[in-house]
């Protein structure tokens, strides 16, 4: 990624004209992010690799007709997210049938109150990101509903803006904000239970637990 030609902005015009070198640069630039997105959405390396390949194959075919209504990166993330959600739908249809009933609830006004009030921020970094903790972080994301997970992955893991996340998912910015807050609060709750337990194991005094 330190090569000078990678830093030069991609030319959408060259991409649309079918320039192979430019396409290769696009693949180099976006493949790590798209692979991570797929891995976080699906929790499975083989599925993530399929999404990665399908995304660029589809992009290659669709580039000549790319209308530039969104940025190239948002467009790619949109293709990748659709691929990931399609696989998820095939593999775990129950997650979606359940979601149809809860989506309106998920976008509604009410936000669940935080329950676990323990300040685990004081734990040392090697404890917060131990390999066991990392596994836990990943499992916690996998437990989010597909709708919440998609928003969290794009906004917080891939660093898309609220607007780009909304464009990539075809939902409103308000829905992005609500789902993002819900996802973050759910993860905070999971992490508080996990790290709170670690604090007990390690002999930290729990200040307060409600």
């Amino acid at each position: 990624m330190n090569e000078p030609n990678v830093k030069k902005p991609l030319s959408v015009q060259a991409l649309k004209a079918g320039n192979r070198e430019e396409f290769a640069r696009m693949v180099e630039q976006y493949s790590p992010g798209i692979y991570r997105l797929a891995l976080k959405m699906l929790g499975n390396a083989q599925d993530a690799e399929d999404v990665l390949q399908e995304t660029f194959l589809k992009a290659l075919r669709a580039l000549p007709g790319f209308e530039e209504r969104s940025s190239l990166s948002t467009w790619l993330y949109r293709i990748a997210m659709n691929e990931a959600l399609m696989i998820l739908r095939k593999k775990r249809p129950e997650a979606f049938s359940l979601e149809d009933q809860t989506t309106s609830q998920e976008d509604g006004e009410s936000i669940e109150e935080p329950r676990d009030i323990v300040d685990w921020c004081c734990l040392p970094e090697n404890e917060l990101l131990s390999s066991e903790a990392r596994d836990f972080l990943n499992r916690a994301v996998e437990q989010l509903s597909p709708a919440l997970r998609a928003v969290f992955v794009l906004r917080d893991l891939q660093d898309l803006s609220v607007r780009e996340t909304a464009e990539a998912l075809g939902i409103s910015e308000t829905a992005v904000k609500t789902r993002l807050l819900r996802a973050r609060l759910k993860l905070r709750e999971e992490l508080s239970a996990y790290y709170g337990h670690r604090m007990e194991v390690l002999g930290y005094d729990r200040i307060e637990r409600m």
């Binding site: 990101l129 917080d156 893991l157 993860l187």
Partner: peptide, 9 residues
């Protein structure tokens, strides 16, 4: 803890 959660991810 919410800030830290986002930071850790």
């Amino acid at each position: 803890t919410l800030r830290k959660t986002i930071e850790l991810y």
